[in-house]
Amino acid sequence: MSSIEQRPRRRAPWVFAALAALLAFLPLVAGPYPQTIARSVLTYMMLAISWDMLIRSGQLSFGIAGFFGLGGYAAAIGATYLGVPPVLTLVFAAVVVGVVALLIGAVVLRLRGMYFAIVTLALAEIFRIVMHNWSSLTGGPNGMLLPRSAFDGNSVATYLMMLVLAAVVIGVSEWFRHSRIHFALTAIRDNETVAASAGVNIYAYLLTAFAITSGIQGAVGASYAQLFGFVTPESSFNVNYTLIPLAMTLLGGMYGTWGPVVGAVLLGVVGEYLKLFIPYGHLLVYGVIIVLVILFMPRGIVGLVRGHLERSRRTTTASEKGGAA
């Protein structure tokens, strides 16, 4: 009764894990520029995963940049005024943003669908405006400098910090996939009446998911602040932190951990490559990719591969049974 899904053992996960380990190791030996790209890929990857964790319940959030930016400011304020050590600002920001999301979620999670999506979009803008105007605390439009950045900005060390944070986020996402939460969220997405009839406390589950995913976005925002050493209203709440993770998840495939991971690596690296040829044009390419994926590959890359694997397995089992359906 431990997990909902019990699939037969396959070799694919191990191949996948080995490949992931190799990819994670590569930037360590490849030098500072690949490490910069890898840190950016990991940043977007974590945001993409956290967004996916909430969409599994059917709740579409456009508020990633809001909680991301809030996390950055929580880190800067915590470090400046409370003396929180650099690496611990990640935890500090996760808790602060998680609590803020809990309070806001208690109200806005009564909304569904388009209404919820619009409110999250508005929230991000509200956070930005507050930070922009609360000059005495946040430095206003100029933003604020962190007194000290994590590992004094050492490239290898900060890459490892991002890697550890990403591992934690992947772990939380997989825990979501393989615990009671998974069924509850899937049921809510599918049909709320049936979910409630099966005993699911819809409000409690949505609130938990919203607080945890926002907390993750807050921690990622704090790590961004540590990497760059400053926060400003324009950069920290940039709408790209909402749109790019969304595009990555759509490309990789929704409703699972590995879709966002694959999407982030592909789009992150491709985007970086494109920047060399058409500065800012990479955003245009992202847009085109989103449209193409939605039209021709609605389940994303992971969904496509999984579909192929399942089909080939089914034909094998069918032929083993002597062709009986």
Binding site: M1, I4, R180, F183, T186
Partner: peptide, 26 residues
């Protein structure tokens, strides 16, 4: 417990999974 009129199952899950989740949240 209620057996609603329609769309009462999780079609992408197996029979056993559908049964187990019936107990899981209670």
């Amino acid at each position: 417990a209620l057996v609603p009129q329609e769309r009462e199952l999780f079609p992408g899950m197996t029979v056993l999974e559908n049964l187990r989740i019936g107990a899981e949240q209670v």
